[in-house]
Simulated scan of single mutants.
Amino acid sequence: MHIAFSEPDADAETLHEVDGIVYALVGRYHGSISAEHGIGILKRDFLDRSRSPAELEVMRRIKTALDPNGILNPGKVLGR
């Protein structure tokens, strides 16, 4: 799902809240918030809505295996 919500008077916090409402529904129906191109920092806070703790741990382990020094996009999506 790609959200395209815009409100001229809305601040970043309000837009983030709207994303949270939509992604809660996505998680409720076992959907995905990202697909072929990855998660990105705008959806980072909502990744747990469509991925289990085990899946997130696998992602962290793969990231660490491929980037042991943490120099590729440090801190962008997955923490150590």
Score class of each variant (00 low, 15 high):
Ala35Thr: 11
Ser34Tyr: 06
Leu47Pro: 01
Thr14Glu: 08
Val18Thr: 05
Gly38Cys: 04
His16Glu: 14
His16Ala: 13
Ala35Trp: 07
Leu42Lys: 10
Gly38Asp: 08
Ile21Trp: 11
Asp19Lys: 06
His37Met: 09
Leu47Glu: 09
Leu15Ala: 13
Leu47Met: 15
Glu55Tyr: 01
Ser50Tyr: 09
Ala54Asp: 13
Ile33Ser: 03
Leu25Ile: 01
Asp19Phe: 04
Ile39Leu: 13
Tyr29Gly: 00
Phe46Ile: 06
Val26Tyr: 02
Thr14Leu: 12
Pro53Ala: 07
Leu42Thr: 10
Gly38Trp: 14
Arg51Gln: 15
Leu15Trp: 02
Ala24Lys: 12
Leu25Val: 02
Gly20His: 04
Gly40Thr: 08
Phe46Asn: 03
His37Cys: 07
Gly27Tyr: 02
Arg51Asn: 14
Val18Ala: 13
Val18His: 04
Ile41Pro: 04
Val26Pro: 01
Ile39Gly: 01
Ala35Gln: 13
Arg49Leu: 05
Gly20Phe: 02
Gly27Asp: 05
His37Gly: 05
Val22Ala: 14
Arg44Trp: 09
Gly27Cys: 06
Ile21Tyr: 10
Ile33Glu: 01
Ala35Phe: 08
Gly31Glu: 09
His16Met: 07
His30Glu: 12
Phe46Asp: 03
Ile41Asp: 06
Ser50Asn: 12
Leu47Trp: 12
Ile33Asp: 00
Lys43His: 10
Gly20Thr: 04
Val26Cys: 09
Asp48Gly: 05
Tyr29Ile: 01
Ile41Leu: 07
Leu47Tyr: 13
Glu13Asn: 12
Gly31Met: 08
Thr14Gly: 00
Ser32Phe: 06
Glu55Pro: 02
Pro53Gln: 09
Val18Phe: 11
Arg51Lys: 15
Ala54His: 11
Asp48Pro: 00
Ile21Met: 09
Lys43Leu: 05
Glu13Gln: 14
Gly20Asn: 03
Arg49Gly: 01
Thr14Tyr: 14
Glu17Trp: 13
Asp48Ser: 14
Glu17Asp: 14
